[in-house]
Amino acid sequence: MSQLEMGRQQWTGPAGQFPLADIARQLRRDVINMVWAAKSGHPGGSLSSTDILTYLFYHEMNLDPQQPDWPDRDRFVLSKGHAAPILYAALARRGYFDPEELSTLRQQGSRLQGHPHYGSLPGIEMSTGSLGQGGSTAVGMALAGKLDKKDYRIFNLWGDGELEEGIVWESVMAAAHYKLDNLTGFVDWNGLQIDGPITQVMNPEPIDAKFRAFGWHVELADGHDFESIGRAIANAKETKGRPTLILCRTVKGKGVSFMENEAGWHGSAPNDAQRLQALADLADPGTSGEPAAQKEVNR
């Protein structure tokens, strides 16, 4: 397990006190190591959404890893459930469970199922993996928050390809209808799905205009810029009487040179050499690090 270099660095404690860029690099390395060890999984869409999850889990959300079921916590639903690796990495480093366990991803008996499973692991708010369904459950959670007159907020993450599912628009309509301003949706706008660019496979554009037409407030953000994400969330919180969509421009495979903007890395695992190259791409500045050194050897 040590060969996975999972490390023990954790960032627990109140949100807002951690160096987000460092965390994001660590989480991306985790994603690579996990998918490499599992020999299957979804790196592309995990890397594109890493900075969004980093911001939410390490800066924005009101949560307590020691009390995952704390009733007043903010909730995050990963509607694009195939990005499970980044959710698991974020939860582990945040203190929900031991990062050593990350290396069990997708193995028989592991709590880290191929797609998030509610009840298997602390911090998983909903079972997802069948695209489109998570968003509807987030609407349900936001409705419950209103019924109980609670202040907690619900965050949901869709893939841009996922928006092709009809149920997404059913949930978007319901969220506006019930004026769920405690709900913030993100779209990981990386432009790719499995069979190719979203605009070629089944064009969901213009995404912003569609959400506006459905009654949502829409914010555009750079999904790899924490300040941009933060501004959009601040505006979402100011918006009353309707839900907010934060349309995050992202790069599929972000941070790994050979994975960026490549649809082929949606659901395939790096081999040994590719892993080392990826880890070198994701090394902390100023560290040559073992992965980087091995990369030289492998050339």
Partner: peptide, 8 residues
């Protein structure tokens, strides 16, 4: 289906 798990 294997590693994708129960949702698939």
């Amino acid at each position: 289906v294997g590693e994708d798990g129960m949702s698939h």
